[in-house]
Computed example of a mutant assay.
Amino acid sequence: MIRVLLADDEAMIRAGVRAILAADADLEVVAEAADGRAAVELAAAHRPDVALLDIRMPGLDGLAAAAEIARATPSVAVAILTTFGDDEYLTRALDGGAKGFLLKSGDPRELIAGVHALADGGAYLAPKLADRVIGRLRATGLGRATTARAKVDSLTGRERDVLALLGAGMSNAQIARRLDVVEGTVKGHVTAILTRLDLENRVQAAILAHEAGLTATR
């Protein structure tokens, strides 16, 4: 069972999201919060697998709450669930340690898929945002690509393989099956990649993989 924390200051939105998640027998909402500070406290108390946070909440906003949860309770995969898909919000969320960014206007199936991906150790961006991020990366030019390739060159061959699969959005379990290794080995490679490349999370690693031209199919 995947345990979910839901934080949104609008009770009707929480009810709607809860109903969507209830359609999947493997998902369970174990706690709800109406503000960011309560979300941080509930994350520490319940240790859910995934926390879904709105951005605009009273007191501590969702972006600040996401960063605090990522620092204080790193076992919780944090995702922003919002109507605001601005680049500034997306960048702040990922820099703060969020592993996912979902839109309330998206297909309910995207929400369920995103929660499963996050619980399985992966990262998830709403498809509309992913297309925009990739387009922005393509527009950054040769300079960023050259820098990214220089960073990737410091990795071992197997670490580059893992990074390419991260770029394809795969979870640790999926990467382990693809490379025919145990999941613990993949976790070790991911930790080494993030440390060596000075990255905060898997989403940043996936972006770097695209910048460096590392490609893999799911």
Results as ranks from 00 to 15, higher is better:
residue 3 R to H: 09
residue 5 L to A: 01
residue 8 D to W: 14
residue 9 D to M: 15
residue 10 E to R: 14
residue 11 A to H: 15
residue 12 M to Y: 07
residue 13 I to E: 03
residue 14 R to A: 10
residue 15 A to R: 12
residue 15 A to S: 12
residue 18 R to Y: 04
residue 24 D to Q: 10
residue 25 A to V: 10
residue 28 E to H: 09
residue 28 E to R: 04
residue 30 V to C: 10
residue 34 A to P: 11
residue 40 V to C: 03
residue 44 A to P: 02
residue 47 R to M: 01
residue 60 L to R: 11
residue 61 D to E: 00
residue 62 G to D: 11
residue 64 A to T: 07
residue 68 E to R: 13
residue 68 E to W: 05
residue 69 I to K: 04
residue 69 I to C: 00
residue 70 A to Q: 03
residue 72 A to S: 06
residue 75 S to V: 11
residue 78 V to W: 07
residue 81 L to T: 08
residue 82 T to N: 02
residue 83 T to Y: 08
residue 84 F to H: 11
residue 85 G to Y: 00
residue 86 D to W: 05
residue 87 D to I: 04
residue 89 Y to L: 02
residue 92 R to S: 01
residue 93 A to Y: 06
residue 96 G to A: 02
residue 99 K to M: 10
residue 100 G to F: 15
residue 101 F to W: 03
residue 104 K to P: 08
residue 105 S to V: 14
residue 106 G to S: 12
residue 106 G to P: 09
residue 107 D to C: 04
residue 109 R to P: 03
residue 109 R to T: 08
residue 110 E to W: 08
residue 113 A to Y: 07
residue 115 V to R: 15
residue 116 H to S: 01
residue 116 H to R: 15
residue 117 A to D: 01
residue 118 L to D: 15
residue 118 L to P: 15
residue 118 L to K: 06
residue 119 A to G: 14
residue 119 A to E: 10
residue 119 A to W: 13
residue 120 D to N: 11
residue 121 G to C: 04
residue 121 G to M: 05
residue 124 Y to E: 01
residue 127 P to C: 13
residue 128 K to A: 00
residue 131 D to C: 02
residue 134 I to Q: 12
residue 134 I to R: 09
residue 136 R to M: 00
residue 138 R to E: 01
residue 139 A to S: 03
residue 139 A to E: 14
residue 142 L to N: 13
residue 146 T to L: 09
residue 148 A to W: 15
residue 148 A to I: 08
residue 150 A to H: 07
residue 151 K to V: 05
residue 151 K to W: 14
residue 151 K to T: 08
residue 153 D to L: 14
residue 154 S to Q: 09
residue 155 L to Y: 07
residue 156 T to K: 01
residue 157 G to D: 13
residue 158 R to L: 05
residue 161 D to R: 08
residue 166 L to T: 08
residue 167 G to F: 05
residue 168 A to V: 01
residue 169 G to C: 12
residue 173 A to K: 13
residue 175 I to L: 00
residue 180 D to R: 05
residue 182 V to M: 12
residue 183 E to T: 03
residue 183 E to Q: 07
residue 184 G to A: 11
residue 185 T to F: 10
residue 189 H to E: 08
residue 191 T to L: 08
residue 194 L to C: 05
residue 195 T to S: 09
residue 197 L to H: 04
residue 198 D to C: 06
residue 203 V to L: 10
residue 204 Q to V: 06
residue 204 Q to L: 14
residue 205 A to N: 15
residue 206 A to H: 10
residue 207 I to W: 10
residue 209 A to P: 07
residue 209 A to G: 13
residue 210 H to E: 14
residue 212 A to F: 14
residue 213 G to E: 11
residue 214 L to E: 05
residue 216 A to S: 08
